[in-house]
Design a protein around this nucleic acid. Structure first.
Lengths: 194, 194
DNA sequence: CGTCTATTTGAATGTACTCAAAAGCGGTGG
DNA sequence: CCACCGCTTTTGAGTACATTCAAATAGACG
């Protein structure tokens, strides 16, 4: 299996010895997902973190009116999981599925915890990864609170220029928190102004 | 100094040896804050995490229209910081101030990092703390995306029953993302229905 | 007691949503 | 290769939730 991408991802934050690298790699497994295929289902316990090597996943929750709200996109080189379910061991509310045919590497929570025991360096890696996640969520929360829809769309386009062009608008609408209809109208309005 | 509360807080997630406890405690310092006093200012680098032992702090950001948006309340037994600034070393966008006369314990980032080197167990503590923070932020983000103002207020009251009764409405409005005027109208509407 | 801030109330407004329908686009099977 | 089907995007009219602005009232603090 080719774990080059995930090892480089890890090595951005910590430096692994040969032994650590080996102990890490044996804990990994891979999985292919067809477009629309679910990796994590709501009301089930999420037992692993996923690292995307190809394609693109998303995590989302469905509200009582049937609307999907996207928490995260995960293109290659990103981690994704239902962290609530992962750390509580309780069934989660998130679904994680593939927006296109994708490849992921899975790390079981139990293996991850063994890794933490054996090599505290991994604890550091995930501590830092999680800190970055908090920062991203803060920024997104502030966007929700202080910006209007058009500005959130702008912010999205600036932060994720690639995703902006590859994802269906409907998905972007669901991420920035507007209806697809309204996003369409915003873009039309933009063009008129130019 | 009395570090009982913070030690109990730590011991909820990990178990410290005598030596670890000592090395931790020597890194701490305390500070008193008067109501409205700023602990962290925007555009300055935040160099510590704060643990509240008395009173209540909040972290917030001011948007370009001058509106404050509260990211977090920190009553006793809670941690608070501008994590973006803390981990990046860059000047942050958050202010942290006291909503009433308060006492906090400060842990410098550099001391914290030394602690991580010396005792990886602390890395675990903060890894778990940070994971919980991600979960809380996810839940709040989903509330913003899927609930309307009244429901967000309900959710707030259920999650923080104590804060609901002690905080000024204006602060709660700023946390749930509505104007103080509208929160007032929502409550009036509630009473009419009962 | 007086001042400053927080809360309430009301009227007018605006941003974003709902519902409906048409047009566009992509994939699939004949 | 074309025709069809389903899904996404666009467009429009009507609506609703929440804001803005203004003014009055209530409360807190020195």
């Amino acid at each position: 299996m080719d774990y080059e991408l995930i090892l480089r991802n890890i090595n951005k934050l910590i430096t692994l010895t040969k032994k650590e690298e080996e102990d890490f790699v044996v804990a990994l497994s891979t999985r292919s997902l067809k477009k629309k295929q679910l990796l994590v289902k709501e009301n089930e316990v999420c037992k692993f973190s996923a690292f995307v090597t190809k394609g693109c996943l998303r995590s989302y929750s469905t509200d009582r009116n049937g609307f999907e709200h996207i928490l995260q996109f995960a293109p290659p080189d990103w981690w994704i999981a239902d962290i609530y379910s992962l750390i509580s061991g309780q069934p989660g509310k998130l679904n994680i599925d593939a927006l296109e045919d994708s490849e992921v590497i899975l790390l079981n929570r139990s293996d991850q915890e063994e890794l933490f025991e054996k090599h505290p360096k991994f604890e550091r890696f995930f501590r830092i990864l999680t800190e970055k996640s908090v920062v991203a969520n803060h920024s997104r929360l502030l966007d929700y609170m202080g910006l209007q829809a058009m500005e959130r769309y702008d912010a999205f386009c600036r932060r994720y220029p690639t995703l902006t062009h590859t994802l269906p608008q409907k998905q972007i609408a669901s991420y920035i928190g507007v209806t697809p209809e309204f996003l369409s109208k915003m873009k039309a309005g933009l063009l008129r102004k130019k």
